[in-house]
Every structure is written in structure tokens, then in C-alpha cells.
Design a protein around this nucleic acid. Sequence first.
RNA 1: GCCGGCUUAGCUCAGUUGGUUAGAGCGCUAGAUUGUGGAUCUAGAGGUCCCCGGUUCGAGACCGGGAGCUGGUACCA
Length: 491
Amino acid sequence: MSKDEQQPGDRRPEARKPRGFPDKAAAVIATERSLVDSITAVYQRWGFDALDTGPFEYVDALGKFLPDTDRPNAGVFALQDDDEQWIALRYDHTAPLARYVAENWERVPKPFRRYSAGPVWRNEKPGPFRFREFIQCDADSVGVAGPAADAEMIAIAAEAMQAAGAARGEYVIRVNSRQILDGIMETAGVLDPAQRGTVLRALDKFDKFGVEGVTLLLGKGRKDESGDITQGAGLVANQIDVLIEFITSRSVTRAETVRKLANSTGMTRSGAQGVAELGEIDAILNALGIGDDAAVFDPSIVRGLEYYTGPVFEAEFLREFHDADGNPMRLGSVGGGGRYDGLVARFRGEPAPATGFSVGVSRLAAAMAATGEEKVQGPVLVLVLDKDQLADYATLASDLRHAGIRAEMYLGSSGMKPQMKYADRRNSPAVVIVGGNEREKGVVTIKDLNAGAAAAKGVTDNEAWRAERPGQFECPRSEMVARIKTIVGRS
RNA sequence: GCCGGCUUAGCUCAGUUGGUUAGAGCGCUAGAUUGUGGAUCUAGAGGUCCCCGGUUCGAGACCGGGAGCUGGUACCA
């Protein structure tokens, strides 16, 4: 302990927490759990097995994110183990999966199908619905090549969105192909790898900035609202035209988009192959019952950098959500995936094609909870009116619990009114009131708080309010559990 | 990371050209109601005016630096 900390006049520590790691209240936790349950049920049904690989990986196994001297914490949370090796918290479930498959290559069945649900960590600037720890729900197939596996993943993505509560038409899976993107860049004469990266990132901004913004980013650069300038890719006008024409070549139906792309001039061989793959994916999606409303081909989808090698896709929730202040906001992408044929091969040298999909559960849950403002139902509260009857009150609460009802005996030291306020705050469905009167008669008084609140809405006169005791009734002790059960079941 | 804005009570904010004891609404606690959540009335609690330094007789206000929050942008493997 340092000298400063020991000084008697020292300040108290400030109650605060690092940003991007929000405290989660009961409603958010409940939403997250139910999302994880329903999404993993989809994965399970499609034949994927659960696998948990734990939070830490060696940084070299995780990817290229060695802690460098300039920004030691860029992207990941890394620390040095006691053997001096750098380890880092996983930033997704795919990289650890690749390591696991490579490490257990002889043991795992091929194709290897597994799902994973759990927190991942990214050391980035947090924002609304962007956290530094969040739950991802992942499904991946390793050892599968060809469009059938990708089509399956897209279908699973659609089902996962529905499992998450998106109705038909409330979500869309946007699909594109890295092969086609590579082809079109070649056609446009963008050959330098670094420049290709800049171009891809510019194209990815299409849904955000539109044709105008992307044109600026492909050319000289773009000025943002604050006046800061984002460096452009430095392309000339006719190069930009080729790329803009491409990303805007989306049609209403997948088949029509494929036809358009197939007929476009100057497509390279690998690009043509990508287009042919999309055609096959379309056929399989139709067979799986995934229509043009659920999955579209969108040439402006890019997703990330070198990681993906073939078809890529993004899941978007189209419903309007609200932030904590009630302002409407578009959630954007809540899931994504694609083909990554090189990730396992990185460890092994031999080809190991793979494709996968991931849902960002925390973002979804936060948006749903903020929008829905759903309160978790509290426990039935047994009021304590006579301190010498604690054993009796404890028995009442216990009887309710034995019947499977959330119940607690009030343990504070306040009078009846604060106890009622407490029940109100906990969103309790009912309170059990037993005082001298009830004890003499061998009954309990039950107050249905929701019914009471509803009945009291019109009452403005305090006398009437007190006299009426809305939602309140007496019943024999033997009927307490049954009567409360109907109240709890109703609310 | 880069650019902008902001920081005064739990929350939302006011605070005059720099002037003595820093305010409001809401919320919270208690009482009116010795056994009832709402409403009303009354009372009360609650503040290092983000931090450090400077200018000044005097700083919540002005100047410099820092931190935090927030928006945009970048990154998002």
C-alpha cells in the first residue's frame, strides 16, 4: 500500500466502473438468456454440438494481434502469463474454433459442426449498444467446401433471426461474395493490396453514406460532421464508376441480381465463379424455403478484411428500436458470417474449408430491453406487521415457495407503508397481509397489486382511496396458495 | 486513434458585467393517515460547482493543462 492510500484524510474511492462493461439488470439478463436458449436450439436442431473453449487464447493463435509497442491494447485485452507468453481474451468464437480444430484434428469428425455461446471481449471505443464485453452465439462447419454449406449457413441465420423474435419481413440476410468483390476490383484496376483494403472499407459504407459518400471515400476523401477528414482511396473517376455501378446493381430478387452480375462486362474468372456460386446458393435457399424477402444478394456487403474468402453475409433486424432515452434508432447488423477457408489451414498447412455464422446477442438484448421497458415480475411479499410473529410470516412465505411461487418475507425494519412501497418497486404481483384481525379469524388478506393499481386510477380523493382498498380480499389460510397462484399466473 | 460538444444535488437543468450563506423541478426520506402502493399538503436529507495550476482583493463563472462523458469518424480481426 502506498503512502497516499494510508493518509487519514484520503478521499473515499469513487464508485465507478470502466466503460463498455455495463451493469445488467434483471430484464436484460432474462432477455439475453432467452435469446441464447432459442438461438442455440436452432443450431442444435441443425446438428451442431456445443463446444466451449474458454476465454483466453495465445495471441499468436488468435491472429495477427500481437500487442505492439505503439498501442499495446489495440483491439484485444492482452496480458502476459507467468511464463512470459502473451495471452488474450477471445474477440470472437471463430478464431478459437480454428485453433481447437487444428489442435484436435485427428480426433474430431469431419465435417465438424459445433456451436458456441458466450462472452467475447473487444478493446474498442464503446457506444450505444456497443460493448467491450458481449455475448455471441456462433455456429460453424469446418471441413465443408462448396455453396451448399454456405446456403445452409444462410438458412440457419434466417432461422436464428426468427428464433430471436424477428417476424418474416422484420429481418433480412444480405449476401455477397468476396470472390466477386476481388474480381470487380481487378476489373477496376485496383491491384495494390493496401488500396484494396481501403476500397473494400469504402464500399462497406454504402448503406451508411450512400453513393455520394462512397464516391468521396473512393476518391479524395470525406469530411465528417465534426469537420474531420477521412482519407480516401485515391481512385480516378472511371475506376469509381465501375465500383459504384457494381454495388448498386442489386435487384429485388436473388435470381435477377445473379443474372445482372453474370451479364456484366469485364468480369474476371474468379468473379464469374463467385457469381456461379451465388446462383447455386439461390437454388438451395429456394429449396430450403428461404425466399427473397428473407435473404437477398447485396453487392455492397463486404464484412471485415482478409478473413473471409467466399460468400459473406450479414443479418439485419429491420424493426425500429429505441435507445435508453427513447430516441428511435436503427440497430443495423446483429449478426454475420461467411466462408473462411484459410483460418484452420493457418495452423496446419493443408486446406480446411469452413463457414460459419454468429449472432450478437448482447446488442439485441440491450435494444429489446431498452425498447420494451419490460419489468421482471417481482416476488410475492409477505408483510411483517407484528415482529413477534416472524415464524408465522416465514411459514406463509415458505408455503408459497413450496408451491413454486417466488415469495419473500419482508426483512427490513420499516412500517407497513414502506413495505407496500417496497412491493410496488419490486413489481410484486401481490402482498400477503396478516395482522391481529386476520390472525383471530384464521384468514389472510391478499392484495392484488396490479388490480389495485388499475382500480385506483380514477380515484383522486384520499378518503375514497383508503376506504376502497382496491384489489384486496380476505380468504382462509388454506386457500392462500391457490388464490395467489391465479394472481401470479394472470400478471 | 482523430475531430467537435459537454461536465453545477440521485436525475433534468438555472445561476446576471467575476461579489458575501450556490438554486429550481422531479426523485428520495418522514409526517398528516398508530394497518395500505396513487394523489394532495407539510417538513427534511442531499453539493470537494470534474481535477490540478494560474489571473484577481475576490472564481461555479476568466486563462492554461489534465480527466471523464457524449456525438461524429476511424478500427471492428
